[in-house]
């Protein structure tokens, strides 16, 4: 336990701050011919040093010279709408290299507030499907969903009159490269990047007849039962049909409207699937309100405890098995917050 300050110490601290009083105490002590070891009171007051600060080191002096007269001077007045990264040596600075000695590090742009507002309006006001908005602006589906969730939260807070850190947000966004998702701007990121399953990284010798039309779906099946071909795995598979339509001579407008319909349909199907799942869950998970509490029932299966009744996924306190918090070496620090 750290030593505590004794009571009445605040008065002493006030004394210490007054340098003249400190000196008089010291002088008085010496005059009285007492040993140089200070009394507890003086010891505490001498915790504040009166030594002059150290001179700047050579590197510090070089830094200040650089900051006042050298390249650092140009960083003082950042140009609006541009990043204020350090110039890389003799060459002029590049807009996306924040660390001049590490040119391999490129800072990627973030969505500006206008871009986020545009995405929110497209989905929530115009009612466009997420997939279509994602494809239109070249923003990942998950990012589109996150933008909408956060924008909704922001608008809810605005309605509640909660204070928001807008100057902070503006300051941060002015320092990093941003992307505004304007209709004519290039895509923000690659939206159809897929996770490479480790099963697909092996070489397989699969004998098949020459006459067989071996498709990507067949290849996926050869790698594993649950492996999907890329056209099913991609985030916006409807883009394939769009490209096929355009290649086969359908007009761009027509192809785009077909794409919109297809994405809307897939979104509707997904919503229905979720609604069905929720309905089943609601049927099992009854909620009973009493005066003070709500009782939440959750349906389970007694079979989850297995033949012996001791399976780890079994419901309830297990019989004949030490509880987790009694096991040696078990980590008891929670790994998530609900």
């Amino acid at each position: 336990m750290p030593p505590r300050l004794p009571t009445g110490c605040s008065a002493q601290l006030v004394n210490c701050l007054d340098r003249s009083s400190l000196c008089t105490t010291q002088r008085a002590a010496t005059a009285a011919g007492r040993p140089s070891w200070p009394s507890p009171a003086t010891q505490q007051s001498s915790a504040f040093s009166t030594t002059a600060p150290r001179d700047l080191t050579i590197n510090q002096r070089r830094f200040w010279k650089w900051a006042r007269k050298g390249l650092g001077k140009t960083l003082r007045s950042p140009k609006p709408g541009q990043t204020n990264y350090m110039p890389s040596g003799s060459n002029s600075s590049r807009a996306d290299v924040p660390f001049p000695t590490n040119p391999a590090f490129r800072s990627s742009p973030v969505l500006s507030d206008e871009a986020r507002e545009r995405i929110w309006e497209n989905v929530m006001k115009k009612g466009l499907p997420l997939k279509a908005v994602s494809a239109r602006h070249g923003v990942d589906m998950r990012r589109v969903a996150a933008v909408i969730r956060l924008k909704e939260l922001e608008k809810a807070w605005e309605a509640q009159g909660k204070p928001m850190a807008i100057p902070y947000s503006k300051a941060v966004l002015s320092m990093v490269p941003t992307h505004d998702c304007a209709p004519d701007s290039p895509p923000f990121e690659a939206i159809n990047e897929m996770h490479v399953h480790s099963y697909t990284q092996q070489q397989i010798f699969l004998p098949t007849s020459e006459s067989r039309h071996f498709t990507r779906a067949d290849a996926a099946k050869a790698f594993g039962e649950k492996i999907l071909p890329p056209e099913k795995k991609m985030w916006v598979p409807e883009l394939l049909q769009l490209e096929k339509d355009i290649a086969s001579g359908v007009g761009i407008q027509e192809a785009r409207s077909r794409f919109l319909q297809a994405t809307a349909k897939s979104e509707l199907e997904m919503a229905e699937k979720h609604a069905k799942k929720d309905a089943i869950a609601n049927e099992e998970n009854v909620r009973v309100n009493t005066d003070r509490f709500q009782f939440r029932f959750e349906g389970i299966s007694v079979d989850s405890s297995g033949k012996t009744g001791r399976h780890i996924r079994g419901v309830g306190w297990r019989y004949g098995v030490p509880h987790n918090d009694r096991k040696p070496g078990a980590v008891k620090i929670p790994t998530k917050v609900e």
Binding site: R287, F293, G299, I300, G316
Partner: peptide
């Protein structure tokens, strides 16, 4: 956690069929 104004709840798990 995200709705501190709600009524406190008690959790029950039950196999209704059994």
């Amino acid at each position: 956690t995200y709705d501190p104004d709600s009524k406190p709840h008690k959790d029950i798990k039950l196999d209704v069929t059994r």
